[in-house]
């Protein structure tokens, strides 16, 4: 894949599309970059991990385990994916 297309914004857009497809229950507030996985979207930890794994497969990257511990919002998910591109490039 062309790495140049994967800005933070484009990864976020991919995450929104993923949730659009997979989220069973619409959250009360609109989904945004600031939506929290558990508190706002109602995902459990296994579903959150599944989403990250699916995004990894989509982009062909691997997110470091320690990076996942700081993940609370969708913005955080996009950040660790973008960071993983940098890790792959180095």
């Amino acid at each position: 894949m062309n790495q140049a297309t994967h800005s933070h914004e484009s990864v976020l857009a991919q995450i929104f599309a993923y949730l659009d497809e997979h989220l069973q229950q619409r959250p009360v507030a609109p989904i945004s970059a600031q939506s929290r996985l558990i508190a706002d979207l109602g995902l459990d930890s296994l579903q959150s991990f599944e989403m990250v794994a699916d995004l990894e497969d989509h982009y062909g990257v691997t997110v470091a385990m320690e990076a996942l511990q700081g993940v609370t919002t969708l913005d955080d998910v996009a950040r660790v994916i973008v960071d993983a591109f940098a890790g792959r490039a180095s």
Partner: peptide, 8 residues
């Protein structure tokens, strides 16, 4: 147990 993740 360490904090698992995801802001709880």
């Amino acid at each position: 147990y360490p904090p698992m993740n995801l802001g709880q």
